[in-house]
Structures are given as C-alpha cells and as structure tokens.
Design a protein around this nucleic acid. Structure first.
Lengths: 363, 363
DNA sequence: CTGAAAGCGCTTACAG
DNA sequence: CTGAAAGCGCTTACAG
C-alpha cells in the first residue's frame, strides 16, 4: 500500500486565504487574468501556498491541460558519453522551455524497438529519437510514424529525417570522414582502414549516417587516387569491446596492414587503442587512429585521440528547441538542420602533441 | 498550442464493445474482479482496445490511484559511467517491479540542492538519492527529510543512512581502501598518495564515504608502520580534469615523490594517468595507480587500471528493490546494507598484465 | 456478472 | 475583481 500522502491541494490554500480554488489557480499560474486580481489577494495566496508547502499535482494538471510538459529523449546508449553530453544539454534546454526531460537509453539494437514503442506510454508531449540508426530499419520507422499519428511530436537526432512531419538534426558525417581522411593523407598515409558500425545491410548504399560516413571516406580516398580496399573495412559494435574486436580483426587480416584507421566513434577508438597496445603496436608510429565525437575522454587517453568533433551540446539543445516549436504549433524553419563537424588534432595521428591543460575542461 | 490529440479513451473501447467503462477498466487491469467477468466480454474488451490502439492515460490513472508508479533516481553526475551502470540496472529493476524510472544527474555540487528539491515536483512515488556526498551537507539532509515528510519514500545509495526512516545501500569503501593499500604495500610501495574528493571540511572526521575511505587508507598504512604524510593527500573534483589536476599538484610538491597513488574513482584515475603521461612519467614504473569503481573503461586504458571494483549493477538493482518494499508498506530488513568491494589487479600497479580479451565485455 | 456514480486535483470558460 | 460549475480519463466501492 502506498503511504498516506497528506497532500496540500489548491483547496487547502483557498480555504486558508478565504478565496475560491479558481482564484488560487489563476494566481499560482501567473496568468494574464492574474492582472485582474487584487494585489492583496494575490499576495495572500502566494504567502499561504508557500507557508502550507503547496506543490502542484502533476497528474491533475496534465489531465486537465491535456499536455504533460514532459519530453522524452531516446538515446542509443547511455554508456557512450557522447549521448550523455547530448542528454545533459537537452535537459537544460527543456528546463528553460518549461519541460521536464525523460532520458531513456535504448540499449542494444534488439531492445530498441521495445524502447521506441514504450515512448507511447511515457506520457510525454514529444520525443527526440537519437538512436542514430533508425533510418535503415523499417520497423523502427513504423513505430515512429505511429507515435506521430497518436499526436506525439517527434524529432530525429543524428539521422536523416524519415518523413516530412519529422524534422531531423544531424551532423555532416560525410564531411567529417573526408576531413579525417584528408588529414591522414596529408600525413602520408595511403592504406587507411575504416572501423564502422555494423548495419543491417551492406554499407554504402544506405541513406544513413553510416552510409554517409563511408561515402565520405571512400570519396576522399578516391580524390587522392586511392581505391579503398574492401579488406580495410571492418564492421562491428560501437562499444569499447566492439572497437577492440574490430581492430583485432583488422590486424588479423593477411593483407598489408593499414597504417591508419578512421574509427566510428571515440569509444570504439578507445577499444581499438587497447587492442593495439596489447599487440605491442605503437600509436601513432605503427598505426594512426582517428576517432569521432570529441567526447571529453578522447583528450585523456594515451595517446590523446585525434578526433572529428561533433557539437554535442548544440545538437541536444537544438533538438529540444525544434521540438518545442512543433509543440507550439509552429513549423520548424527547415526539415533538416545539418551541423558541421570539426577536426581536432591531438596525438593519435602523430601530427602534434596535446595537453589536457588549458582546455575548457580543466578549470 | 498543443496539437489536437485524438486520444482513444476507455469510453471509446466501452462503446465499441457495448459495455460500461468500469468493465473495460476492470478487464484491462487484470484485477481479481476480472475473474467475475464473462470470458466473452473479457475477450471482446481486449480485442477492441487492441484494435482501437487504446493506451491508458498516465495522468488520469495517477490522479485516481494517488500513486504515479514512477521512481526517481538522483545520481551525482551522468558523465561518470559508474552512475550510468547503476542507473541502467536500476531502470531494469524498476521495470520488473512495474515502475518507470526517472534518472536525474545532479551535476556540480552547487546544483545538487536544486536537483534534490526538484524531486518534490517530479511526481514520483519514491526517490533514490545517489549523490554520494549528501551526508556531510545539512542542507541536503534537510531537503531529504522534507521529501519523506511529504509522503515520498526515499533510499540513499552510496552513503550512510541519514535517519531511521531512510535505508541506505552502500559499499564498504574503508575495506576497499585497505585492500588497495595492502596490495601496494605488498608490491613494495612505502610512499602511497591518496587523491580524494574535495569535501566541505577536513577529511577523516566526517561520517561519509570520503571519510571512511581515508580511514581505510590511513589504517592500512599504520598497520604497516607507516604514518601517512599529509603531503601525500590531495583533494579535488571527481572528474577527468579533477584527477589530472590532483596528480599534477601531487607531482609539484617538493616532498619525495610518492611511488603509488590510490585514486578516488576510475574516472579520476584516468585523469591522473594522463597527467603522468604528459610529464613523461611511466605507469607503473614511476608511479603505480589504483582506481575505484571498476567501470568498463578501466579495462581499456593504457595501462589497464588496477581498481577496487564496486558491484554497480547490484547496487542499482538492490536500491530499487528496497524502495519497492517501502512503497509496499513493508519495512526493509535492515537500515544499512553494505556490499563488499573487490580488488581487480591489472596493469597500472605492475603486478601483472591484463587483456581485454576474454572478459565478459568482449563477446 | 455488470453498470451508475463519485471523485482524484486541477484549469478554464463563463457568470456575475 | 472573484466564484460556481464542468470536465480532463481513470478507478473503485457500491448497487443491483
């Protein structure tokens, strides 16, 4: 049994002041109508609700207003700091817009559909889907579509827009891959591997972040007259062990060993670094490694990761803002907003040395 | 304006089947009373609600039941994977008990009080406070007390129980520190530093995790006839840059340099590793480093961290279970449940080499 | 075996 | 300038 809950309601406040509940409601909500409330009454209501410790009942308010003022953010996995950064920024933005934010980690691919479907029941007004891999999965798209049909507003983050009513905020990962490869080419590398996320189908044909990235990688090589060897491509999970496994697979191949690797994200790159370390291979001397995301951790690895930085805070914040526009009945200015990544050169490609001192992270 | 929300209610289902809303409610909730419902009716209700896409309205249900079936988990910061591990396990446990879990990152110390106070408004039935530092802060304790006064159930995680009504689940960090120091002593170290969390007062007098850990550290040294030099103690933030800064401070001191360091947690230890790397100091040769928590990352650093592992999943799960007991009106079996930490020996103290291969993380 | 009625706490037109 | 009334969608005794 739930404990007895001596809830202070609007009724109690009203009785204490000697006004009606409606008056209390109007005052407490600071409505325009509150202008028409006598100052003395207003003050008395404020005082009494403070004194009695009144706290509005969410459920009642939501039921009546027909909106909950909560947003849901479905991220791929909370164990990747990149998504934590996005979530923290998103929560802050939600806060300033008067919303609560429910952050949900989708977990492994097979749990994702369930998590998506649950969004229906989270009781939120709108959702941000940041799993970064839905656009290649029809089932996920279907659920997303259903969500919108049921009156939820949705925004996609880190992927393409699946349909006209659902705006997308994403990073130009094709450009990111190009910047990375060009950096490596400039350093004299010719055999450049790509550790990529495992997808449902062959890479490169999908309209997805993964496909975009691969295209960037291949085109940048092509522009330098290099035809990417299929043996340079390894696909796997975007996790620490995933990166570890992929790098080991790459090193196990009989082909001439690549001298550099562009890795799916920083977490995966850290896994790859570990595999190299265990094999006694030196980074960057034996293998240059370049990550993606720009999470804080990438500055603290040994060696510090050169990476393609994504504006994680901006993405989180912007997604919330677009969602709020939608909830306010306004159409967002564009269906897709694409942010630019930025190459951050540190130690893992040998271009220069880095120090954690003096960054924004070290006060 | 919120979009028009063509909500399917219990009424619609009732009308479709030709029964009353009460019957629909009883059937859908699978109540004991449902036993008294004709099978044909039951099936018809189920079919119609499925067909119509009925989804219960959370707000209405909560309002009526006077319980929301949501739990809140306030963790210190989501950017420490240790708390993510706890949160993920807690959510799973909440799920199996029929609750939703709202995970909130408290953020920096100054934001913590605000976050705590907000718990009032999250509309949850119970809260788990896992900031790991409340017990030394009277203001935090006061808010926690208020929460319980307002009818919320509360459980403290990773700290001592602040009062009889609030159970605590924690780790014996004093033992953890002892295990770590004994390991280092066994390896021949004599000057062992301690990088600790900055608290509101001097260390060692507080009844807190921090104080407990320090006591374990000092006593283990004492047992070996070593009186801890105050210069071996550095206090700072429990973050990557915090660890980086603390290690640099330690190295800047004129006293004979310690040969080993027991660090507050793994994230901080990774910061410390980086500081050592930048100074050209080798781990473990020039300085042995030992972390705490046992997060996955600690296996992927270079060198791999020797650490004091905490049962993070168990902690998260158990906290939820205790909270559920409380919500069911049962008293938990004990006011404090203390779990044991475990030393995990890897590379950073030089005792042996480690490999990421073959762990549970690498499938 | 099922329905009518009341009510959870709030907000919002609408009166006056 | 403020109050009475209705209703958001659900659940739960209580009738029958």
């Amino acid at each position: 049994m739930p404990p007895p809950r001596p809830r202070v309601t609007i009724q109690h406040v009203a009785r204490a002041v000697g006004v009606s509940p409606s008056t209390v409601s109007v005052v407490l909500n600071g409505h325009d109508r509150a202008l028409g409330i006598r100052e003395a009454t207003r003050l008395a209501v404020l005082e009494a609700s403070e004194r009695l410790g009144y706290r509005a009942n969410h459920a009642a308010r939501s039921l009546r207003r027909r909106r909950t003022n909560v947003l849901s953010l479905l991220v791929q996995a909370l164990d990747n700091p990149c998504f934590v950064d996005i979530a923290v920024a998103a929560r802050e933005a939600a806060d300033t817009h008067g919303y609560e934010l429910n952050v949900i980690g989708a977990g492994p691919v097979d749990a994702e559909l369930r998590a998506l479907d649950r969004l229906h029941d989270e009781g939120s007004d709108g959702v941000i889907v940041a799993t970064g891999r839905h656009s290649t999965r029809p089932a996920a798209l279907q659920i997303l579509h259903d969500l919108v049909t049921h009156g939820l507003r949705a925004v996609v983050l880190l992927d393409h827009s699946p349909e006209p009513g659902i705006p997308a905020i994403r990073v130009d990962v094709e450009l990111g891959a190009r910047l990375a490869v060009e950096h490596l080419l400039g350093l004299g590398h010719r055999r450049i591997a790509h550790l990529a996320l495992q997808g449902p189908g062959p890479i490169g044909i999908e309209q997805s972040s993964q496909g975009d990235r691969f295209r960037g990688y291949r085109r940048a090589l092509l522009a330098a007259g290099i035809d990417a060897d299929p043996d340079w491509l390894v696909r796997g999970q975007d996790t620490l062990p995933g990166g570890y496994l992929m790098m080991n697979q790459l090193l196990d191949r009989p082909t001439p060993r690549p001298t550099a690797a562009l890795v799916y994200n920083d977490i995966t790159a850290i896994g790859a670094l570990r595999a190299l370390h265990e094999r006694g291979l030196r980074v960057p001397d034996d293998m240059a490694v370049i990550g993606t995301d720009g999470i804080d951790l990438s500055l603290f690895t040994t060696p510090a990761l050169t990476t393609v930085d994504h504006p994680r805070e901006v993405l989180g914040r912007y997604a919330v803002e677009v969602l709020c526009e939608l909830l306010d009945g306004r159409e967002p200015p564009e269906l897709e907003r694409v942010f630019e990544p930025q190459l951050v050169v540190r130690e893992s490609c040998g271009a220069r040395t880095a120090t954690a001192r003096g960054t924004r992270h070290v006060a």
